[in-house]
Amino acid sequence: MLEIRDLRVAVDGKDILTGLDLRVAPGEVHAIMGPNGSGKSTLAHVLAGRDGYEVTGGEILFEGRPLLDLAPEERACAGLFLAFQYPVEIPGVNNTYFLKAAVNAIRKHRGEPELDAMDFLALVREKLAVLHMDESLLKRGVNVGFSGGEKKRNEIFQLAIMEPRLAILDETDSGLDIDALKDVAKGVNALRSPERAIILVTHYQRLLDHIVPDRVHVLSGGRIATSGGQDLALELESRGYEWVREAAAGA
């Protein structure tokens, strides 16, 4: 589904990713962990197509097609979804309108008919319930006046509605209380399927108790320093990242 080969990315002339390799197959859940500033969000943004990152080397294939040539909206239509670490507030653009526009843009791209108002509302109500979100949030501007937790829930709510092929969650867990974390995990777990893949970017092991990954990678020094299973996350939790950094430097 996703294949990243020797990805090198610089921001403002500073090398952030220095040869990152990653393969994610359909049906898999991968966790990418790493200390602050290690380049996790950089990777997520480059995958989603954000400006301001200079790809200085390597390539990314998404379902066999080169991803880097596509505009952000083309990536979304192709089935890639990024749940933002810091969702932006968009005053003046109503949440319901935005969601409907997004869903229908993607459906149109897939050659599916647009959802009518009734079907859309039914879909929205179902997913709101899963995430314990109040319907009144839909009447506001996108993320406007949402609490930190509401913003994160809203990202997963959108994820649930869009049903992408590949979901990248950038620290969706940080700043969430345990109830919110469980709701988010429920929303994500409901999406797990043999055709879909999920990349969980996280700083803490906590999320992985609720969404059990197939693989865990540690991003350090601009590349995947080490990979393993669920036990790697537990080891990181007890020993910290310094251990990985030293191991990587020593290797």
């Binding site: 989603a48 909206e73 979804f81 933002f84 997004a102 843009a105 791209h109």
Partner: peptide
Amino acid sequence: EQMLFYLRARGIAE
């Protein structure tokens, strides 16, 4: 630009 990217990342044409 952040708002623009957010909308585009959800599939909405530029």
